[in-house]
Design a protein around this nucleic acid. Structure first.
Lengths: 197, 197
DNA sequence: CTCATTCTGATACTCGCAGTATCCGATACC
DNA sequence: GGTATCGGATACTGCGAGTATCAGAATGAG
């Protein structure tokens, strides 16, 4: 592709970019989504106009910041058994909600997702990317015969992601890791029980 | 307790109460939570002050309205088998998200729950009440031997409530009822498979 | 070097809306 | 009849997002 026509006047200062990002992130962790644009500018030690030149809207600013906050890479476990790996994955998912500040921010981000479809898209995409990254775990489990080959992996992942999100959002204490893993693997019917209909 | 001292002047007009409630509900379904107090008053054909006399705050008004909206009683199934009953319960939970307007409102209510702890409390309480009402189903299932007697029922209910909420909130298509029920009852491990560790 | 252009911080302005205050007429208790 | 509250209407206050403007600095074009 052709080099973009070289910009004429003064170039945007990358240091300002960074100062703004840092300020928003700090404010987000301290006080949640409720910040004014003036606070952001002040905290960044930057002119109000410089913020609006980069983000046309407060929504844009927060969308970008929330995106960066959610995009945390997670280690892929390999404990040798599906139960072990799942425990790890579930525990990782739960970890966010143990830290009070992170939990508060997560709640608010999910809250925004409820009112702003673009935020919902962002969250969904980020979550799904993170999830698919750990699907090696399920491939291995199927090879070992610990997981049904035809299992609906989206259903599996969404079941525990949903549980965690639901409880976190409504302020219900997090579930025990082992109980969740056991429920996901074996369900609530009695062991070996075959359902009559 | 003593009768409250009889109020002195003119009494609040119940008709006005009702007109306001109806107006908010209508606006809520039409356009979601984003309504102005002037719109509410205008739609109700009522003075602005009369709205503020009843609800000191927009938040109060919406909290009350959302509460009434969520407080829908649900039939308790009795199909003769746990799988059948569960299908019914899951389908009922899913039903809300099939109607576009209701889905939109639900998303926004959950969104508010993320940012306002009082809304979260209200939603949690309402949901839990509705859930416990259908626990007869599980009692019967345990008697029939279709459910582990020591099953964590909150985990069971929150798993599918969470799934539905999570997918609804992020705009992911709803899961199939049968797949959910099957996963809850038997899990994702191969049938009869015993986990090695 | 000079000029045009776009950045930067600062300040002032518009606009929408929640919440408050005030008026005047109506209604109800004492 | 006196007084307190409700009802509708309207004006005012306060806050914060977004816009406009300005003077000074930086940078590429010619």
């Amino acid at each position: 592709m052709p080099t973009s026509p070289s910009p004429r006047g003064r170039r945007p200062d990358p240091a300002v970019d960074e100062k703004i990002r840092a300020a928003v992130l700090a404010l987000l962790l301290e006080r949640g989504l409720e910040m004014t644009m003036d606070e952001v500018a002040a905290r960044a030690g930057v002119g109000r106009a410089s913020v609006f030149r980069r983000y046309g809207t407060k929504r844009d600013l927060l969308l970008d910041t929330m995106g960066r906050l959610l995009d945390v890479h997670v280690a892929i476990p390999d404990t040798g058994s599906l139960a072990g790996d799942l425990r790890q994955v579930v525990a990782d998912t739960l970890a966010v909600w143990r830290d009070d500040r992170l939990a508060a921010v997560s709640r608010q981000v999910l809250g925004e997702a409820g009112r702003d479809p673009e935020v919902a898209d962002m969250v969904r995409t980020t979550m799904r990317e993170r999830m698919t990254r750990s699907w090696v775990v399920y491939d291995r489990a199927i090879e070992r015969g610990e997981l049904r080959p035809d299992a609906d992996l989206w259903l599996l992942t969404d079941l525990f992601a949903g549980l965690v999100v639901y409880r976190g959002l409504l302020g219900i204490g997090p579930p025990g890791v082992d109980a969740v893993v056991d429920a996901l693997l074996h369900g609530f019917a009695p062991q070996g029980g075959v359902e009559q209909h």
